[in-house]
Amino acid sequence: MNWRAFGRKTVRHPLFVMWAIVVFSLIVKESYPLSHFPMYSNIEPKSHYFYLANGNGEPLKGKRYFGIAMSNMKKKYHSFLTPLAEVRSDEAGKRIKASELGEADQEQCGQNLIDYLLPRGEARGSWKRDKPDVLRLVRIDIKREGTVLKETKRVIAERSIAK
């Protein structure tokens, strides 16, 4: 087989660029401008989200106080979880997923998120005016059981706020 001719023919195929982008993107995953576009690629009967609350558990206006959408806050929190999972994987000598990290690690990442949020709040009048005594990061897990959706609540991290 003439590999050179085969290679030339392949590269000149009118769909070569498209398939090359598809294969390369699936290999490198998130590497701008390439992406493997993983949103909603594996739909499960469960999901989770986060919100911010005060010391009494009353929810706070997250976007108003910190200028961040709750969906982006979740991504930011996960951006702390993922590298920590890699550290834990190295320590354990086996792969540990971000979703398998223990409560202490989750709290550490929650504190990292609060570290990220507070300076954003300090730049906003609404937060400076209405600061609560305590800021909590709360996680809600949603699960479908039959035709019913059930929610469970857990505090991931909290911090006293200096007035």
């Binding site: 999901s47 989200y49 911010l52 997250g62 108003r64 949603i142």
Partner: peptide, 12 residues
Amino acid sequence: MKTNAQKYYEYL
């Protein structure tokens, strides 16, 4: 439902 909740907690 997750999206709904996330939107709600932005401005209550």
